[in-house]
Write a protein that binds this DNA or RNA. Structure first.
Length: 585
RNA sequence: GCGCCCGUAGCUCAACCGGAUAGAGCACCUGCCUUCUAAGCAGGAUGUUGCAGGUUCGAGUCCUGCCGGGCGCGCCA
């Protein structure tokens, strides 16, 4: 319908240009949008206002010319000029009936489109270091990333979901060392656990596995481990202490054993993260290993490419990338004076690799605390001769949890953070997924745990799911009354509909594909959550105002078609958000 | 100090590329269950869009300067 209106408006402008009423050199972009207020009709265009200047006449006068040149047919009841020069289109109620047929025919495919067909998109999200379980801070990135990916897929893009596994850095060495120290403790050793080590219970679980499977094979005397190490905090430097401890661990265990402990820690935690995300309804096409980039030489290759670009220099024993040439605040180190490449160097290689793979668009979803990182990554891509505009970095603000009106305190250092797993158990996957994407990603968010758990109309998740379950319930009642839904009869008799509530519902249903498309291309799943709430509201209102299972078979079948279509759209929308659509509640 | 994000009703948030009288929900008050699930519905009001300028037919939206909050500013990741 919208396309139809755009077409007749475009035709009208062409007509006016041919008649000399409009300059021929202007190429208007015809915008038609849903009227916000139904008093303004169903669709509105601001065409006359945007063209007024080029046409050198008043918007309202131009609007009249356009309307005069308009060929109105196909369901348009009337066209009016209003306000400063809007052209409003009023549709007859039967213009909307076709949407029910569309929905019932297309079922799960209704709302999907090919608007983004041919576009290869990569979405990288969560990518938390595998040094511990995911916490609630990762939850928002997971829910948001999954929704953005699913939305893009719904509009026809080919989407590759990816988790970048930081399996190569110092943090992983700290984890391996922490696991081994806990293992020694389990063998009866006593010492002060390093203040910079990983303290969570999960480390002890991994250590227990090591001891269960390998007995005392990995034991060493405490004196061997801690002799001649720089002091730990508070007296000494905790960083120097842990680095020396890592080195000592490597020496005592030897390459193979150290590797084993390292892998055990990494794999256990990665399995846990994978499992956790899976239960959260978040799945990936690929888990991309940072270590594979290092081992394949891709990191060194990227550094060499930068070196050739002449934006690299040596200073203080380190190798620097002159990112300030591309607007970054300061230059960045690629290779440290100890010869180790930085995380940034891996990340350059990783992003270069993404673009080499031929994606039209690369989307990174990061926590907002990493925003300072964006300019340097884009700078590197530019220096490499890649197009930084292909990279979209979406920054997700943190969510603050509230329970009983109080902020839930989180402290990572003591290991007493709230995990995503705990959140799922407390409020359920459906509520968590929905709540996380209810707000724009750049918006600071308050996550009310009590509300997410509450089974009341305050809770938008239940409100929407309830609408879905209610439709199912109506059909169960129908069966109990020994009646059958004659779908063909209902679709043929849509003219029986015409109540205000029915018109409103039809209009809402017809909007769904537009909402999906808009939410997808703007990377704003919250638009869908708002839409679904409005749709559920339209349904509940209708439900209370009219009886669906009436004695009039024609009316009954038409209404059943309408509510089944509503159910289908709710199910489709919830599915895109990773939320279930229950048959009963 | 510099950079990025945010500031909309008592609270949590919308407002599609700059459009018409800035909208929802919650909280608060009043009604509706012998009738398809009351996890629902109907009715009731709330604004100097942080402040001050600017751009234009039109600004919550764009520009400049302030104020307030968050985050970042490592040879950490």
């Amino acid at each position: 319908m919208k396309e139809h209106i755009i077409k007749i408006l475009t035709d009208a402008v062409t007509q006016l240009q041919a008649d000399g009423d409009l300059p021929g050199d202007v190429t208007p972009t015809v915008m038609v949008e849903r009227a916000r207020d139904r008093a303004h009709g169903d669709f509105a265009s601001n065409l006359a206002m945007t063209l007024a200047r080029a046409a050198r006449c008043k918007p309202r006068d131009l609007a009249e010319k356009i309307v005069a040149a308009l060929s109105t047919d196909g369901g348009i009841d009337k066209v009016e000029i209003a306000g400063p020069g809007f052209i409003n289109f009023y549709l007859g109620s039967d213009a909307w009936h076709g949407v029910v047929t569309d929905i019932l025919q297309q079922a799960g495919a209704y709302g999907r489109s090919n608007a983004g067909a041919g576009q290869q998109v990569q979405v990288e999200f969560v990518s938390a270091n595998p040094t511990g379980p995911l916490h609630v801070g990762h939850g928002r990135g997971a829910a948001y990333g999954a929704a953005v990916a699913d939305l893009l897929e719904a509009v026809g893009c080919t989407v590759h979901r990816e988790y970048y596994v930081n399996d190569d850095g110092r943090q992983m060495d700290i984890l391996a060392t922490s696991v081994w120290l806990r293992y020694l403790e389990l063998g009866g050793a006593e010492f002060d656990f390093p203040s910079n080590g990983y303290q969570g219970d999960y480390v002890q679980d991994i250590a227990a596995t090591l001891r269960r499977e390998h007995g005392d094979d990995y034991d060493h005397a405490v004196s061997e481990v801690f002799t001649d190490l720089p002091a730990d905090a508070p007296a000494g430097d905790k960083e120097a202490h842990i680095d020396a401890l890592i080195q000592r661990t490597r020496e005592l265990l030897g390459d193979n054993r150290y590797r084993y402990v390292f892998e055990l820690g990494l794999n256990t935690i990665l399995d846990d993260i994978r499992d956790d995300l899976g239960l959260f309804g978040v799945d990936y096409q690929e888990w991309y290993s940072e270590r594979s980039l290092v081992e394949s030489g891709a990191v060194n290759k990227a550094i060499e490419r930068l070196r050739h670009s002449k934006h690299v220099y040596e200073q203080d024993g380190a190798l620097w990338f002159r990112s300030t040439d591309y607007g970054d605040e300061k230059d960045r180190v690629l290779v440290r004076d100890n010869g180790q490449t930085t995380y940034f160097a891996s990340d350059i290689a990783y992003h270069a690799n993404k673009l080499e793979r031929g994606y039209d668009r690369v989307i990174d979803i990061w926590g907002a605390d990493h925003h300072g990182y964006v300019p340097r990554v884009k700078a590197a891509l530019q220096a490499l001769g890649d197009d930084p505009a292909k990279l979209d970095v979406l920054l997700v603000q943190f969510a603050i949890l509230y329970r009983g009106g109080e902020k839930v305190q989180m402290s990572t250092r003591s290991g007493e953070f709230v995990t995503l797993r705990q959140l799922r158990k407390e409020v359920g996957t459906d509520a968590a997924r929905f709540f996380y994407v209810m707000r724009k990603c750049e918006q600071h968010m308050d996550f009310d745990l009590d509300l997410a758990k509450s089974q009341s109309n305050d809770n938008p998740v239940y409100y929407i799911q309830y609408a879905h379950a209610r439709v199912r319930s109506v059909f169960r009642q129908l069966a109990e009354k020994q009646l059958e839904w004659d779908r063909a009869d209902g679709l043929a008799g849509m003219n029986a509909l015409g109540e205000t509530h029915e018109d409103a519902l039809l209009v809402s249903l017809s909007r769904y594909p537009e909402v999906v498309e808009s939410a997808a291309f703007n990377h704003e799943p919250h638009m869908l959550t708002h839409y679904l709430r409005e749709l559920a509201n339209d349904f509940h209102t209708y439900y209370n105002a009219h009886t669906f299972i009436t004695d009039d078979a024609g009316l009954r079948n038409a209404r059943l078609c309408l509510i089944e279509a509503t159910r289908q759209v709710i199910a489709n929308g919830l599915h895109l958000l990773g939320v279930s659509a229950p048959d009963s509640m």
